[in-house]
Amino acid sequence: MNSSAHDLPPAAAATADAAVVREATDRLLAATEALEPDAVTEPSQLPGWTRGHVLAHLARNADALINVLSGRPMYAGAEIRDADIERDAHRPLAEQLADVRTASDQLDALFAAQDDEGWQRTVELRNGVKDLASGIPFRRLIEVELHHVDLGIGYTIEDLSAEFTDRETANMAKRFTGHPDVREAIELRAEDGRSWRTGAATGDPLVIVGTPAALTGWLTGRTTGSGLSAAAPLPVLPVL
Rank of each mutant, 00 (worst) to 15 (best):
residue 110 L to C: 05
residue 124 E to G: 03
residue 141 L to E: 12
residue 123 V to C: 07
residue 139 R to T: 12
residue 129 V to E: 12
residue 135 G to L: 04
residue 138 F to P: 13
residue 137 P to I: 05
residue 126 R to S: 11
residue 131 D to L: 13
residue 139 R to M: 12
residue 112 A to I: 00
residue 120 Q to H: 14
residue 141 L to N: 11
residue 119 W to G: 11
residue 113 A to Y: 08
residue 126 R to C: 05
residue 114 Q to N: 06
residue 128 G to E: 13
residue 119 W to Q: 06
residue 119 W to H: 11
residue 110 L to D: 05
residue 111 F to G: 07
residue 134 S to K: 08
residue 111 F to W: 11
residue 143 E to I: 00
residue 123 V to T: 08
residue 132 L to N: 05
residue 124 E to W: 07
residue 111 F to Y: 12
residue 125 L to I: 05
residue 127 N to G: 07
residue 133 A to W: 09
residue 138 F to V: 09
residue 111 F to V: 02
residue 123 V to A: 01
residue 124 E to H: 10
residue 119 W to D: 05
residue 126 R to F: 04
residue 119 W to Y: 13
residue 135 G to N: 11
residue 133 A to G: 01
residue 140 R to V: 08
residue 114 Q to C: 11
residue 131 D to W: 11
residue 135 G to D: 10
residue 138 F to Y: 14
residue 115 D to A: 10
residue 140 R to S: 09
residue 142 I to V: 15
residue 132 L to A: 10
residue 125 L to W: 01
residue 114 Q to T: 02
residue 122 T to S: 15
residue 136 I to M: 06
residue 130 K to C: 07
residue 135 G to V: 04
residue 123 V to N: 04
residue 120 Q to V: 02
residue 125 L to Y: 00
residue 141 L to G: 01
residue 143 E to L: 02
residue 135 G to Y: 09
residue 138 F to A: 01
residue 113 A to R: 11
residue 128 G to M: 12
residue 123 V to Y: 06
residue 116 D to F: 12
residue 120 Q to N: 15
residue 118 G to N: 06
residue 141 L to F: 14
residue 122 T to C: 03
residue 114 Q to I: 02
residue 114 Q to A: 13
residue 129 V to K: 14
residue 128 G to F: 06
residue 141 L to V: 11
residue 114 Q to M: 15
residue 143 E to T: 02
residue 131 D to G: 03
residue 126 R to I: 06
residue 134 S to P: 00
residue 129 V to P: 00
residue 114 Q to G: 09
residue 111 F to R: 07
residue 111 F to A: 08
residue 119 W to V: 02
residue 120 Q to S: 15
residue 142 I to F: 13
residue 112 A to C: 07
residue 137 P to K: 01
residue 123 V to K: 00
residue 136 I to L: 07
residue 137 P to G: 00
residue 110 L to R: 14
residue 141 L to P: 06
residue 121 R to Q: 12
residue 137 P to E: 04
residue 136 I to Q: 05
residue 122 T to A: 08
residue 119 W to P: 03
residue 116 D to V: 08
residue 123 V to M: 07
residue 129 V to W: 05
residue 139 R to W: 05
residue 127 N to A: 15
residue 116 D to A: 13
residue 114 Q to D: 05
residue 131 D to S: 14
residue 124 E to V: 13
residue 139 R to S: 08
residue 133 A to F: 10
residue 137 P to L: 02
residue 115 D to N: 14
residue 130 K to Y: 02
residue 123 V to G: 03
residue 110 L to T: 03
residue 126 R to N: 09
residue 126 R to P: 00
residue 117 E to V: 01
residue 135 G to A: 14
residue 122 T to M: 06
residue 128 G to N: 10
residue 119 W to R: 09
residue 134 S to C: 14
residue 143 E to V: 08
residue 142 I to T: 14
residue 118 G to M: 04
residue 125 L to D: 00
residue 140 R to C: 00
residue 134 S to R: 02
residue 129 V to D: 09
residue 125 L to T: 06
residue 128 G to Q: 12
residue 124 E to S: 11
residue 129 V to L: 13
residue 129 V to Y: 08
residue 132 L to I: 02
residue 116 D to H: 12
residue 131 D to C: 13
residue 118 G to Q: 04
residue 124 E to K: 10
residue 116 D to R: 10
residue 115 D to E: 09
residue 130 K to I: 11
residue 123 V to S: 02
residue 129 V to F: 10
residue 118 G to W: 05
residue 126 R to Q: 12
residue 112 A to N: 06
residue 112 A to F: 07
residue 113 A to N: 03
residue 142 I to M: 15
residue 123 V to L: 04
